[in-house]
Design a protein around this nucleic acid. Structure first.
Length: 518
RNA sequence: GCCCCGUUCGUCUAGUUGGCCUAGGACGCAAGAUUUUCAUUCUUGAAAUCAGGGGUUCGAAUCCCCUACGGGGUACCA
């Protein structure tokens, strides 16, 4: 029994990692995390972070998916050093544009005896799988079965040549050696051993002239001088094949290090986080909103839901990795500085909406009012409301502490922009008394006959009025709030009065007296 | 079925060389305080016999074995 393993290599060479999504739909948030870890690792080691598009399955391409990927990282502020847009010395970075290079590599393997032609049609394979299933067995195209199939191992040279000459469709399969232990060193899981007997002869090169992921990925990683392959755990079972491929090509000495990340799981129940979970449980599974080009079905996105990119990055970074210690809020520079593969957890992590909310809340508090105001300005524009930046900034400063998302801004601040058009009945019932209009008129006079230039002055004015007339503080203040806001919410009354101005305040008081009847 | 990878409060996790762990933090939850409202904030609290069972050891969440459970893979998909 032979033993093949990937050895530890020195970390001296320039670190180059790649994020290699397949443009088959919107990028999943788990994919974003994979990209983030790649990015953090690359930057930590002053290396390069590369975007490579793996579009070898032409049948599953979804239009707009590639643009979606680019837009996602633009939004997050994560930059690629090389990629389909950035270019680079290893271009092209889209596998369909590299189509011509793969066949030679596949042929190399055939010539060296590491791979073979297989002429079995998909229908034939399906039929044989069904037969096996009837006997409750699992068909595997491997060293035991390949001699019974139609391929360049079972057929003689003349037959093969004939089939090839007739342009019979074929695939190229990897020829796994018999009963060989493949040891692979994973940076997160340490040693993983698999025997080739349970591995099947994977297709490397498809009948449509495209390579499969396995071939393309290894060839490109080699050609692009990738030093570390950081990807999801779903790739772990096929990693032995990749290791064998490096060996077969004679690239063992430059084989990258592997790191397989734990998966992101559903918050409830089990299984990995899927597209459906998001809308079912009320949180986005995608970074950006996505409209399916075929079904027009819309899936919500973090951006559209009012998450801040920095918060998403921080939250995602900690979902499966932890620097130790008790700090939880990290700037991207700190994440880069602290990041280490050894501190990535092995078990899958469940997505926690509440924690995500908390992170976003924290980031909203830390963010500049001017930046946040831009978000609110967008909403105002949609409603045809024109307010100067300085005003909106002031408003945001007042309400941001009660917002988890930028999408909460309007609901928490509308009364700074428009007068209430209805009054919460419960509040009316509780606080509006027969004598209320009288008090409100007195307050009108109070504000009219005084000048003020700070919130505190308004505070004093109101408090003194209440004290001097021996009135109930709660009642007066809540009534005033009802009049100005329409319901029981918002920042302090004096603050609202100060920001909207005397004229508007008096107008709203007058309005309420006119419209609220008991 | 077979193969691989996992398993510390409800959730994310600290715990990395076995003793400072009567297992720490955060989110969430509960109670209280602050407050003119809604929030925020603050304080306190409940919450994991470290999946279970065997070992090894003076001593194990930490090492070994078994079992259970969870996840992933098993395509001419990535």
């Amino acid at each position: 029994m032979g033993i093949i393993e990937n050895k530890d290599k020195d970390m001296e060479k320039q670190v180059r990692v790649r994020f290699a999504p397949s443009p088959t739909g919107p990028l999943h948030i788990g994919g974003v995390r994979t990209a983030l870890y790649n990015y953090l690792f690359a930057k930590k080691h002053n290396g390069q972070f590369i975007l490579r598009i793996e579009d070898t399955d032409q049948g599953r391409l979804v239009s707009g998916a590639e643009e979606y990927i680019i837009e996602t990282f633009d939004w997050l502020g994560i930059k690629f050093d090389e990629g389909i847009r950035e270019g680079g010395s290893f271009a092209p970075y889209r596998q369909s544009d590299r189509k011509s290079i793969y066949k030679d590599y596949a042929m190399q393997l055939v010539e060296k005896g590491w791979a073979y032609y297989a002429f079995d049609t998909p229908e034939e394979l399906e039929a044989i799988r069904k037969t096996y299933e009837l006997e409750k067995k699992n068909f595997q195209y491997d060293n035991l079965t390949r001699t019974q199939m139609r391929n360049s191992i079972s057929l003689n040279q003349t037959q093969v040549k004939e089939l090839l000459d007739k342009e019979t469709p074929y695939v190229i399969r990897f020829k796994f050696p018999e009963n060989t232990e493949i040891k692979l060193h994973d940076m997160i899981r340490k040693e993983v051993v698999m025997n080739t007997n349970i591995l099947d002869d994977k297709v490397l090169y498809k009948s449509d002239g495209m390579p499969t992921y396995h071939l393309a990925n290894v060839v490109d990683d080699h050609l692009m001088q990738i030093t570390h392959v950081i990807r999801g755990e779903e790739w772990l079972p096929s990693c032995p094949l990749h290791v064998m491929l490096y060996k077969a090509f004679g690239w063992e000495n430059t084989m990258p290090q592997f790191a397989h990340l734990p998966l992101l799981l559903k918050p409830d129940g089990n299984g990995k986080l899927s597209k459906r979970d998001g809308d079912r449980l009320g949180f986005p599974v995608f970074p950006l909103q996505w409209e399916d080009p075929k079904t027009q079905e819309i899936s919500s996105g973090y951006r559209e839901s009012g998450y801040l990119p920095k918060a998403v990055i921080n939250f995602l970074a900690l979902l499966g990795w932890n620097p130790g210690g008790e700090k939880e809020l990290f700037k991207i520079e700190e994440l880069i500085d602290l990041f280490s593969m050894e501190r990535i957890s092995k078990g899958g992590a469940k997505f926690d909406l509440e924690k995500a909310k908390w992170f976003n809340h924290q980031y909203i508090q830390m963010e500049q009012n001017q930046t946040l105001a831009k978000e609110l300005l967008k909403v105002l524009a949609e409603k045809n409301l024109n307010f100067p930046m300085e005003y909106v900034e002031k408003v945001v400063g007042q309400i941001k502490e009660r917002c988890n998302f930028t999408n909460d801004f309007w609901d928490q601040s509308y009364f700074f922009f428009i007068a209430p058009n209805n009054y919460d009945e419960k509040v009316v019932k509780k606080h509006w008394k027969a004598e209320t209009p009288t008090y409100l008129e007195q307050i009108t006079q109070l504000l009219n006959s005084n000048t003020y230039s700070t919130t505190e002055e308004i505070d004093h004015l109101l408090h003194d009025y209440i004290k001097d007339n021996d009135l109930n503080m709660g009642n007066i203040m809540n009534t005033l709030r009802l009049v100005l806001v329409g319901k029981s919410m918002g920042p302090s009354i004096s603050e609202i009065i100060f920001v909207i101005g005397k004229e508007e305040t008096l107008g709203r008081i007058g309005n309420a007296i006119k419209h609220i009847n008991i």
